[in-house]
Amino acid sequence: MNNILGRAVSGNVTDENDKSYFVQVDGITFLLDKSEIINPLHIGSKFSGFAYENEDHKMQMTRNAPKVQIDKFAFGQVVQSKHGLGVFVNIGLPNKDIAVSIDDLPELTKLWPKYGDYLMIALKVDKKGRIWGELADEQVFQDISTPGSRDLMNHNLMATTYRLKMAGTRVITDDYHLGFIHPSERDIEPNLGKHVQVRVIGILRDGSLNLSMKPRGYEAIDGDSKMIFAVLKHADNYQVNYTDKSKPEDIKQFFGISKGQFKRAIGHLLKGRLVEQSDGILKLTEKGIETEVED
């Protein structure tokens, strides 16, 4: 049985009824839905298809073999999770989703794949003849990846997370470049299988990418913060003689906003390490000077 399930195999048509053909492979009979067949099959003819056990625990074959098979890895979409068991992945079978065991998922359930996320899996069959999803390991991703080029620097890309570690998150982009997101380059840890937008902040010698989930400096600011940032950009030596200690009336006269608005605005800039203030002076940092603001 373990040499049949999860694979494309050939058998002989032995019988039929109104809805199904019956195909025998090594003494095991599989249902074949007649709706899949264009030209009628005859008793005794050969048929090749993908063999599996459907959700009703019946042996079935389909001519529409999924990309995910035994020793064949491909992405499938997560459609359900069950506490204490794992998650279920749609690989394209008409009446069977594939379970990925809790043993292969993160210890924290909040990092489990959610509905609509993607996992790269192959199939495996246990001693009881049950089909499971097997997560691709690092070597699989290495084998299917392509190195990134220098012209990707600072580009936005879409990527899928495939490995969660204390040191950071490993992803593969939609163009099959491998990437790494350091914890300092994300506000929250993405769950396994999540499709995320990333920005290229470095390219290593092997063509893998260092990535960030944080916005560019100018994307992180808006409104009053953007106005103050623009003022500093055009000021002599990138600085002005106003801080959160300045008088409200002076701030209102120069910037046209209240002191409360001013403090909130520069708070965003300070958090982004775009400005610094001391001795009555607010000025751009080196990062702020290098950051461009889009209109």
Results as ranks from 00 to 15, higher is better:
A74I: 05
F75R: 13
F75V: 11
G76A: 15
G76W: 04
Q77F: 06
Q80I: 00
S81W: 03
K82M: 04
V87Q: 04
F88K: 10
F88L: 10
F88W: 13
I91Q: 05
I91R: 06
I91P: 06
G92V: 15
G92H: 09
K96M: 12
D97N: 10
A99C: 05
I102R: 11
P106K: 01
L108A: 06
L108T: 01
L111Y: 14
L111P: 01
W112F: 12
W112M: 11
V125A: 02
K128N: 11
G129N: 09
I131T: 15
G133T: 13
Q139N: 13
I144V: 14
S145K: 08
S145D: 08
T146A: 01
T146W: 02
T146V: 15
T146I: 15
P147W: 01
G148L: 00
R150G: 03
D151Q: 13
L152S: 08
L152P: 04
L152W: 11
L152R: 15
N154V: 10
A159T: 06
T160C: 09
T161C: 11
Y162I: 15
Y162N: 06
K165T: 15
M166P: 03
T169R: 05
V171K: 01
I172W: 06
I172Q: 09
D174S: 08
D174L: 14
D175G: 02
D175P: 00
Y176I: 12
